[in-house]
Lab assay of single mutants.
Amino acid sequence: KELVLVLYDYQEKSPRELTVKKGDILTLLNSTNKDWWKIEVNGRQGFVPAAYLKKL
């Protein structure tokens, strides 16, 4: 499993997105899109802007 660090808080703006908090370490599911990465948070899957995340 690949992990990502959340660099900035992000509030979901659609049902396909997820809310994340700065400092969270989460599972990366897909990073093929350069702008939006798919991650998992508490069993939910969704997208967060790639600029808000850093691969560990």
Score class of each variant (00 low, 15 high):
residue 50 A to N: 04
residue 21 K to H: 15
residue 17 E to N: 08
residue 14 S to M: 07
residue 56 L to H: 06
residue 34 K to M: 10
residue 19 T to M: 06
residue 8 Y to L: 11
residue 4 V to N: 00
residue 15 P to E: 13
residue 55 K to T: 08
residue 48 V to H: 01
residue 44 R to K: 14
residue 45 Q to L: 10
residue 55 K to C: 06
residue 46 G to N: 02
residue 6 V to Y: 00
residue 48 V to Y: 01
residue 2 E to R: 09
residue 42 N to V: 06
residue 49 P to N: 03
residue 27 T to E: 11
residue 18 L to T: 09
residue 32 T to H: 13
residue 12 E to G: 14
residue 55 K to A: 08
residue 50 A to S: 15
residue 18 L to R: 04
residue 36 W to I: 04
residue 22 K to S: 13
residue 23 G to D: 06
residue 39 I to V: 14
residue 52 Y to T: 08
residue 39 I to F: 02
residue 29 L to W: 06
residue 15 P to V: 11
residue 38 K to I: 15
residue 44 R to I: 14
residue 45 Q to T: 14
residue 34 K to N: 13
residue 12 E to Q: 13
residue 3 L to D: 04
residue 12 E to K: 14
residue 34 K to L: 11
residue 50 A to R: 09
residue 9 D to C: 03
residue 7 L to H: 02
residue 26 L to W: 12
residue 35 D to A: 12
residue 23 G to C: 05
residue 9 D to I: 01
residue 35 D to P: 02
residue 4 V to H: 01
residue 35 D to Q: 15
residue 2 E to N: 10
residue 55 K to S: 07
residue 40 E to M: 11
residue 4 V to A: 08
residue 5 L to C: 07
residue 46 G to Q: 02
residue 22 K to R: 15
residue 14 S to I: 05
residue 40 E to L: 07
residue 8 Y to A: 12
residue 11 Q to M: 12
residue 38 K to T: 12
residue 19 T to N: 07
residue 24 D to L: 09
residue 44 R to P: 01
residue 43 G to D: 08
residue 39 I to P: 00
residue 19 T to Q: 06
residue 17 E to K: 08
residue 24 D to K: 04
residue 52 Y to R: 04
residue 44 R to M: 13
residue 7 L to G: 01
residue 1 K to M: 15
residue 3 L to A: 06
residue 41 V to C: 07
residue 24 D to F: 07
residue 7 L to S: 02
residue 12 E to C: 07
residue 48 V to M: 05
residue 1 K to W: 11
residue 12 E to H: 11
residue 16 R to K: 15
residue 6 V to A: 08
residue 13 K to N: 10
residue 17 E to D: 06
residue 47 F to G: 02
residue 12 E to Y: 07
residue 14 S to Y: 13
residue 17 E to G: 12
residue 18 L to C: 08
residue 12 E to W: 07
residue 31 S to D: 14
residue 27 T to R: 14
residue 37 W to L: 02
residue 7 L to P: 00
residue 23 G to H: 05
residue 28 L to P: 00
residue 16 R to G: 14
residue 51 A to G: 13
residue 43 G to Y: 06
residue 17 E to T: 08
residue 25 I to Q: 05
residue 27 T to H: 15
residue 20 V to S: 01
residue 54 K to P: 00
residue 39 I to Y: 00
residue 8 Y to Q: 13
residue 27 T to C: 07
residue 2 E to D: 12
residue 9 D to H: 05
residue 39 I to G: 04
residue 23 G to A: 03
residue 19 T to F: 06
residue 25 I to F: 05
residue 49 P to D: 02
residue 11 Q to W: 15
residue 42 N to I: 05
residue 36 W to E: 06
residue 41 V to Q: 15
residue 42 N to P: 08
residue 7 L to V: 07
residue 36 W to Q: 04
residue 5 L to W: 06
residue 29 L to M: 10
residue 7 L to F: 02
residue 35 D to E: 11
residue 34 K to S: 12
residue 2 E to C: 07
residue 8 Y to G: 08
residue 22 K to Y: 05
residue 21 K to L: 09
residue 34 K to W: 08
residue 28 L to C: 07
residue 17 E to M: 05
residue 49 P to A: 03
residue 54 K to N: 08
residue 36 W to N: 03
residue 20 V to M: 06
residue 41 V to H: 15
residue 39 I to M: 07
residue 8 Y to H: 15
residue 41 V to M: 11
residue 18 L to W: 04
residue 56 L to Q: 06
residue 38 K to N: 09
residue 54 K to T: 09
